[in-house]
């Protein structure tokens, strides 16, 4: 496990604040994060109509950690700020074949989410922004470490598709193999470089 400093945007103060990128989130950290997230989610759900409930509202990060945390193929990352986990990422380093370039291997983002209090989907006054961008940058870095030259892939939830397009990921359409028929996105090496460096 390692920790390094990153920044995220405190939307209420409208300024960048220092956060911690946790590589190798522990089961204890996942348990605490899940407790904070589910408590917050309950409050938001009571205030919004059922049609607007997030489709990933039932994700249980503690259960995910128990299932995947013991396996060398998976890695948990988290962005921590103000003593709370602001976002988490579960990455698979069991490499897959890229659908854009079939000769190349790719790292897959199994699950990625921000804390409920950071989602415009749930509140008009989210607390932090940039959590998703930091986690995508983390996935790209991990892809480099695995020899995949920044290539990453994931299945985006419908209301998050815009975010992944803004990262420069290519929309490869609905994946018929996905149990919920979500759209599959891939980031090429070139797009990863542009995302990280702007050129």
């Amino acid at each position: 496990m390692s920790r390094s400093a990153v920044k995220i945007l405190n939307l209420r103060a409208n300024r960048l604040v220092t956060a911690t990128l946790v590589s190798g989130v522990s089961i204890r950290e996942a348990q605490i994060a899940q407790m904070h997230w589910s408590r917050a989610l309950q409050k938001y759900l009571e205030a919004i109509p059922k049609e607007k409930w997030p489709e990933h509202g039932g994700w249980d990060w503690e259960a995910k950690h128990k299932k995947y945390g013991r396996l060398a193929a998976y890695r948990f990352y988290g962005v921590e700020c103000a003593n709370k986990m602001q976002g988490m990422l579960l990455l698979s380093t069991l490499l897959r074949t890229s659908r854009i370039d079939k000769k190349k291997q790719i790292v897959y983002g199994v699950y990625l989410a921000s804390a409920p209090w950071n989602l415009r989907l749930l509140t008009d006054a989210p607390e932090y922004s940039l959590v998703g961008s930091v986690l995508v940058a983390t996935a790209i870095q991990a892809s480099h470490d695995e020899g995949c030259e920044g290539r990453i892939s994931l299945h985006a939830l419908e209301q998050s598709e815009g975010f992944y397009k803004s990262c420069g990921m290519k929309d490869l359409g609905v994946d018929e193999e996905h149990e919920n028929r979500l759209k599959y996105f891939e980031m090429t090496t070139k797009a990863a470089k542009i995302f990280l460096t702007g050129k």
Binding site: L45, V110, Y111, Q159
Partner: peptide, 17 residues
């Protein structure tokens, strides 16, 4: 870029509440 995004979630399966 993130200003207008409603959510950032990605996953290999959905789990509603």
């Amino acid at each position: 870029a993130e200003a207008g995004c409603l959510d950032i979630a990605a996953g290999m399966s959905l789990e509603p509440v």
